[in-house]
């Protein structure tokens, strides 16, 4: 009782740092991994290599932020890879069709959000389990991408130059995708921590019935997290297309699994209501560094998959053990 009255005035900085500390176990894992990487291969600390790692963290990280929102509500989004594919094709078609890059960007982002909105309506209004709804969307959107592209990659050709900045440009020596990820992550952290919508995401993920009875519009929350996830998939698609100068209908295949793995390694609970963006950032960094070391020391991509899979199971196993305690 008395503790309540003796607590010092509370600063937000304090709470923020507390949540960073919570993710700090992971931070040590990440730093340890970097040390190991540097010891195993001197090329790891090469600036060009580090830039590559950062770029990869950024690309997977952006999609994973959307995935984190969805998983916090106890949902899952299997369709982000396919939505990315549709958006990549759409971007290439619009740009080669002579659209201004700015307009193309806006339309592509709307397409991604729209496909996400379909997921959201299915889950929130139709009460379709998220796994099934987004599995269906995963198959449908991939089909849509292949149909739009006629099964062929679409090169940007002349349009490539005007669209290069997004994927290949740099600002103050830092690649543009990394800036974009930083902005996305900062907004996401702000939304989850400092807005009623963020609170409602945690509430819905913790206990949907209690959230409903507490006056939260559960449908609205469930709808918007899929829109956000679709939007961020579209944003990633734009970076892909700009970087590769080609819109491939198969772009993003399997990225949903990477994003789920990153989110889970980052400590967000698949049962909803627990976790956050800090963990997801570190999760993305851990997976990127790991892939990078294995490439540098020449482990075959086949073996890499085995390692990656084992790490995902290991991360969840660790989490469950910690909770049981």
């Amino acid at each position: 009782m008395s503790d309540l009255t003796t607590t010092q005035p509370q600063s937000n900085i304090h709470k923020l740092s507390a949540s960073i500390l919570k993710a700090s176990g992971l931070l040590w894992v990440f730093l340890g991994l970097c040390v190991v990487a540097a010891l195993l291969s001197p090329a790891f600390l090469n600036p060009a290599n580090l830039m590559n790692v950062f770029r990869q963290v950024a690309l997977y990280g952006i999609v994973s932020v959307g995935m984190t929102f969805v998983i916090l509500t106890k949902g899952i989004d299997l369709s982000v890879g396919s939505i990315l594919g549709v958006c990549a094709v759409a971007a290439a078609l619009l740009l080669t069709g002579g659209w201004s890059p700015w307009l193309a960007v806006v339309v592509v982002l709307l397409i991604g959000s729209g496909l996400g909105a379909v997921n959201g309506i299915g889950v929130a209004v139709g009460r379709v389990p998220p796994f099934i709804m987004t599995l269906g969307m995963m198959v449908m959107a991939r089909g849509l991408a292949l149909t739009l592209a006629n099964g062929q990659p679409i090169g940007l050709k002349d349009a490539a130059a005007s669209f290069a900045w997004l994927g290949r440009g740099a600002l103050l020596g830092v690649p543009v995708p990394v800036w974009i990820f930083a902005v996305v992550a900062a907004i996401a952290i702000f939304v989850l921590r400092y807005t009623p919508f963020g609170r409602q995401i945690y509430a819905v993920g913790s206990n949907e019935e209690a959230a409903h009875l507490s006056g939260i519009s559960v449908n609205r929350v469930n709808f918007y997290v899929y829109v956000i996830s679709g939007f961020l998939a579209a944003l990633t698609a734009l970076i892909f297309v700009s970087r590769l100068t080609v819109g491939e209908p198969t772009a993003g295949t399997g990225i949903e699994l990477e994003a789920i793995a990153i989110t889970v390694i980052g400590g967000t609970s698949l049962f909803g209501g627990e976790g956050g963006i800090f963990g997801t950032i570190i999760g993305a960094a851990i997976l990127a560094v790991l892939a990078n070391i294995m490439n540098l020391v020449g482990i075959s991509p086949f073996t890499q998959q085995i390692v990656k899979g084992a790490i995902i199971v290991g991360a969840v196993l660790y989490e469950m053990q910690r909770k049981r305690k």
Binding site: P196, A203, S214
Partner: peptide
Amino acid sequence: KTDGLFLLQSVSFNITISRLR
């Protein structure tokens, strides 16, 4: 437990969630 509380969350979260504005 099933209809009233967010068991994973803090005391403060549970109290203020009904009206955050």
